[in-house]
Design a protein around this nucleic acid. Structure first.
Length: 477
RNA sequence: CGGGAAGUGGCUCAACUUGGUAGAGCACCUGGUUUGGGACCAGGUGGUUGCAGGUUCAAAUCCUGUCUUCCCGACCA
């Protein structure tokens, strides 16, 4: 059989960046607009986002969070109340300066994130310990004036969710920060089939305004790291800056403790860069909006009725499926199902039916299986979907392990990053100058300090001084 | 934000050097024949050439500005 690769898609190993945008376009996930860094998320891409939203939203609600909607615009004075946040975001903020043709007395910032809005709201709506905690979340768009943009990975406008919570005690807020990080980590593991590493950001890499930042880091097929989710502990920084005071149980004024956490449409980019191939998108079944496509080959009544029968049964099992009954050729339909990342394909044709068989194809490996029609096909499909989900995770994990290096010598560090980058584990003394030094190697940054208390030496990989912190380093998107 | 390249029907490109009123393949639509890896035949629709100015009797073509995309670098809370 001739095995023609999708002609629209650049080879992944030849040009990864072009391959990525080719997949985005070929699978109709997004298309460019006439505004730099603002993309049109097309139905196929948006369906993935909706799937992510519905899963995460229910996890948030199970843990007591409620959804709200904050304004798009932030008055300049409000933004300026927290110095570090302003400093961090200033270069990336877009301003509204006039309404109609009238210049505004005070500029309005288009939200790059909403800590200031939530804090301002909390300031006037929290007055007693009885008002705490407040566990809020919002699904919205934000705007950051990025210089270099790429669909899903770094766009100016993007969709995300931002949780903002406020608590009576430090312990409770810290537990919240960790608990949300775990929700993200589990979501990556269980649904996206992406093995992520969780840990703390260094001072240099943490969110401006946070006391500390936890992060979910994942490694793409080409060895480049992607920050895929964050959870911040603010302590009392914002409550003091925004004067959120409440009467505590001792009838004294006190400042509450805050957190924020978020994931964005960047996760769609991660899905592509971890799992997809030269035939197009590959989606883990649990996040695929359509899990099964049934392709009838020919117009025989027997074929069509069998296709409809399978569709009904799949739907009854809650498995999203559809029949491709367009008048395209079978080859076209196969390729189309592949480029769109439909996890399982059922091919029904005369040739198989003469032997009482049909063909099942899994997208991830493109392996074909012939199955007798008198067996429980729906059961087979269910098992196959589970296999694909598990195998995709295992493959991604193996690949990440192959691309994770342990290094005790700076020269070796450099050789690795210049030849076959990935995650590098190396000891660090805690000095920002050493972190800066590593950045000279192809812009390698610290990704996180993982929670696992691993030690590979007692010397900093840069300066050789005493070091007891293991850091995971990587080139980032 | 610096350096480079490119924008012509939905897509890939031709015509540009040497100005003369836009063409092909694919896609799309109609009808028919087909159907196991991107089908075939016949007919058809679709573009004031990214946008805005300028030069000229005449601009896709020359000039200026601007926007968008891609590559390299800087930046990326």
């Amino acid at each position: 059989m001739k095995d023609k690769q999708n002609k629209e898609i650049t080879n992944r190993d030849v040009d990864f960046a072009r391959w990525y945008t080719d997949v985005v376009k070929a699978a109709h996930l997004a298309s460019y607009s006439n505004t730099k860094g603002c993309i049109v998320i097309e139905p196929n891409g948006y369906a993935i986002w909706e799937k992510m939203q519905s899963i995460l939203d229910s996890k948030f609600k199970e843990t007591g969070h409620v959804n709200v909607s904050m304004p798009l615009l932030i008055p300049e004075n409000l933004l300026r109340k927290e110095g570090e946040l302003v400093k961090g975001f200033a270069p990336e903020v877009a301003w509204v300066t006039s309404g109609g043709d009238k210049k505004l007395d005070e500029r309005l910032c288009i939200r790059p994130t909403s800590e200031t809005l939530f804090s301002d709201y909390f300031a006037s709506n929290v007055s007693s310990y009885r008002d705490l905690p407040k566990l809020y979340n919002q699904w919205c768009n934000v705007l950051r004036w990025e210089k270099e943009t790429r669909p899903f990975l770094r766009s100016r406008e993007f969709l995300w969710q931002e949780g903002h919570t406020i608590h009576e005690t430090k312990e409770e807020a810290e537990a919240e920060t960790l608990s949300m990080l775990n929700i993200y980590n589990n979501f990556f593991h269980d649904y996206l089939a992406i093995p992520s590493i969780v840990g703390k950001k260094t001072e240099k890499e943490k969110f401006a305004g946070a006391e500390y930042t936890y992060t979910v880091e994942s490694l793409m097929y080409n060895g480049v790291a992607l920050q895929s989710g964050t959870s911040h502990y603010f302590g009392q920084k914002f409550s003091k800056a925004y004067d959120i005071k409440y009467l505590n149980r001792e009838n004294k004024f006190d400042y509450p403790y805050q957190t924020s956490w978020g994931v964005s449409t960047r996760m769609i980019g991660a899905l592509i860069m971890v799992h997809s191939d030269d035939y197009g998108l590959v989606l883990p079944p649990k996040i695929a909006p359509k899990k099964v496509v049934i392709i009838p080959i020919g117009n025989d009544l027997e074929i069509l009725s069998l296709a409809n029968d399978y569709l009904d049964k799949l739907k009854k099992e809650g498995i999203e499926a559809y029949i491709d009954n367009s008048d395209k050729s079978p080859g076209y339909k196969f390729a189309d199902a592949e480029v769109n990342g439909i996890p399982v394909r059922i091919e029904i044709g005369k040739r198989d039916l003469e032997n009482n068989m049909i063909t099942l194809v899994r997208r991830d490996t493109r392996e074909k299986m012939q199955v007798f029609t008198n067996t429980d096909i729906i059961h087979d499909v269910k098992i196959l979907l589970e296999d694909i989900q598990r195998d995709m995770y295992d493959r991604a994990l193996r690949r990440r392990e192959e691309m994770t290096y342990t290094v005790t010598d700076l020269e070796e560090f450099e050789t690795i990053m210049n030849s076959h980058p990935g995650f590098v584990k190396a000891m660090w003394c805690g000095n920002a100058e050493c972190e800066e030094k590593i950045k000279e190697i192809r812009g390698t940054k610290s990704r996180c300090i993982p929670f696992t208390d691993e030690k590979i030496s007692d010397k900093c990989v840069v300066c050789g001084k005493k070091a007891d912190t293991l850091v995971i380093w990587g080139i980032q998107y």
